[in-house]
Simulated scan of single mutants.
Amino acid sequence: MSRSRTDQAVSPRKRERGIRKLVHLSRLMIVGSRLPLTRTPAEAGLAYEEVVFHATDGVELKGWFIPAGTGPAPTVVWVHGWLWNRMGNVAGRVPFRDRDVDFLPATKALHDAGYSVLTFDLANHGESGDRRPLTFGPWEGRDFVGAVTYLRSRDDVIADRIGAIGMAAGGNTVLYGAPEALPLRALLIVQPTKLTVFNDNFARDQLGRFGSVVARSMDVVYWLRRAPLPSRQNPAIPAARVRGATVQYVQGVGDPWGTIAVVEDISAATPHSLGVIRYPSPPGRYEGYRYVMDDTADVVGFFDRYL
C-alpha cells in the first residue's frame, strides 16, 4: 500500500526536526551553553564574596565564597553539572527533559552548620573562561584543582579540611581532579557517569535507533580536537587514586541515562568509599539530583562525620 500524501509530507519535516535536534545536542555536548546567573546566595540570607581564580591550565574561573564566620573553617566546594552554573540548574533551556536543581538549600544548611562554601562556574559555564571541547571530567579536573589551590591560599580556610560535592559531570570532575588536590577529607559524588554508557543511553533516548551510532562517532570529533576520547574515559581509574578521602556516592534508581552498575564499579575502585546510596527517585535523571535539595540533613551529616 502506498503512503498517503500526508505521510509523505510529514516525513521530511520529521527528518528536518531530527537533524536540527541532532545538531543542537551535538553542539551542547561539545561546546556547551552558558546558563546565566539570575540569583545569588543573598536570596538565602548569606553573605558572600565574589572570587576569581584560575584552573591549573590558566583558564579564569569565577565563583562565590560564602564564609562560615570570621575565623578559619572547614570548607565544601560545589562542582556543578553539564550546562549548569554555580547555583545549579534552571529547567527548560535544553531540548530534553530536565528539572530545576537548586544548590541554595544545602549551601545554607552547610553554612549554618559551620562550613564555608565555595561555589564556582566550571570552564565553558556561567561566567568562567573558555576551554573547548567539554570533556566531562578529564580537563575540567583542572578547574577543581584550581579551586582547591585557591582555597588553600585563604587564611579563613582550614587547608587540610576541604571537601566537595560533585554533581553528575561535576562528580566526574572531582574524581579526575582529586588525585592532584590531595589531601581531601570528604567527597559527596552524586550520579557520576561513565561517558560511553551515558552517551549511548542519552543518544538513544533522544535520537532513537540511530542514537548509538551518533554516540560512537563522538570519538572522531574529540580525536580531531586532540581532546580525551569519550570511549577511553572511566572515572573509576582516577577514583582508585583518591586516597585518604571518604567518598559517598549517590545514584537515582530511576535514571534512564546513568546506571547503578557504573556507579558501583566506581565505588568499588575507590579506596575509602561508603558505597552507593540508591536514591528512590521516580523515572528521570534529574529526579536523582533532588538528594541535595530534599536531604540536606544527610548532606550536612556526611560532612559533620568525615570533614
Rank of each mutant, 00 (worst) to 15 (best):
G275M: 07
A268M: 12
E287Q: 15
S273D: 07
G252L: 09
A240V: 12
V262I: 06
G244N: 11
I260A: 04
A245W: 06
P256F: 03
G244V: 13
I277S: 03
G288R: 07
G275E: 12
R243A: 15
R285Y: 14
E287H: 14
V262W: 02
V262H: 01
P280K: 05
I266D: 02
S267F: 00
R241E: 14
V276S: 03
G284E: 03
T270W: 05
Y249L: 02
Q248Y: 11
V250Q: 00
A269N: 05
R241Q: 15
A269F: 04
G252V: 00
S267K: 03
P283Q: 11
G284V: 03
E264V: 04
R285E: 15
E264F: 04
G244T: 09
G284R: 01
G252A: 08
Y286A: 12
G258P: 04
T246F: 04
P271I: 13
A240H: 11
A240G: 13
S281T: 01
W257M: 01
A261C: 13
Y279E: 06
D265H: 11
V253M: 14
I266T: 06
A261P: 09
G244C: 13
R285V: 12
T270F: 09
A269M: 12
S267W: 05
E287Y: 13
I266H: 11
Q251M: 14
P271W: 03
P282A: 06
A269W: 06
L274M: 14
V263K: 07
